[in-house]
Simulated assay, not measured.
Amino acid sequence: MVRVEQDAGNLVVKVEDNGIGIPESAFCDLFKPFTQVDSASNRQYEGTGLGLALVKKLIRMHGGNVWVESELGIGSRFSFNLPLPSEGVPF
């Protein structure tokens, strides 16, 4: 599910899933380049570990922030905010 809202001069986008969840101990590494929560050679999910690092860099370049909330066995929510121009949402 994707939600978009406006909060205190920011556009806030939240992307939620009901997947396997992420342990809180892994939060600090999620946004590091080439880092994956499951780094075992026989892991179930593929990827390079660059996606979230690039997202964080792009969001920060535009003056925003990105964060995660997750619970094992329940799912995860990745959110980011971007400052809105003083005129409001430009679309």
Rank of each mutant, 00 (worst) to 15 (best):
A26F: 02
S41Y: 14
C28Y: 15
G49C: 07
G73E: 14
Q6C: 12
G88M: 06
V13Y: 00
V13T: 09
S79C: 07
L52P: 06
L84S: 01
L50Y: 09
V66I: 13
G49N: 01
I20L: 14
F78I: 07
L58N: 15
Q44W: 14
E87R: 06
L50K: 14
A8M: 11
V15Y: 08
L11H: 05
S79V: 00
D17G: 04
N10Y: 03
L11C: 10
R3M: 04
R43T: 09
W67G: 11
V89S: 04
S25N: 10
L54H: 13
G75F: 08
F80C: 12
G21L: 11
L50R: 12
E69P: 05
L72D: 09
G9D: 05
F91T: 09
G21I: 08
P85W: 12
G51N: 10
A8S: 10
P83N: 00
D38T: 03
F34A: 13
N81M: 14
V2D: 03
E16A: 12
D29L: 08
R77E: 03
E5C: 00
E46D: 13
I59W: 12
V55T: 12
L52I: 09
S70Q: 03
D38F: 09
I74W: 15
P83S: 03
G47V: 00
K56Y: 09
K57G: 12
E69V: 02
P83Y: 01
M61P: 11
S39E: 13
S86M: 07
S79M: 08
I59S: 05
P83V: 00
G73C: 08
E24I: 08
V2N: 03
I59A: 03
K56H: 11
V13C: 00
E5P: 00
S79T: 06
I22A: 03
V55I: 15
N10M: 13
V37M: 09
V15M: 08
V66T: 10
A26D: 10
N10F: 02
F31K: 09
G19I: 05
Q36H: 00
L54D: 15
E69Y: 05
F27G: 08
V68D: 04
G64L: 11
A40L: 13
F27Y: 08
G51Y: 12
I22E: 12
K14F: 06
R77F: 06
Q6V: 14
E5D: 11
T35V: 11
R77S: 07
F80Q: 07
I22Y: 06
V2G: 10
K32P: 05
I20G: 06
G73F: 05
L50W: 08
E46G: 01
F78C: 12
L52A: 03
I74M: 13
L58R: 12
C28M: 15
G64D: 15
K32R: 14
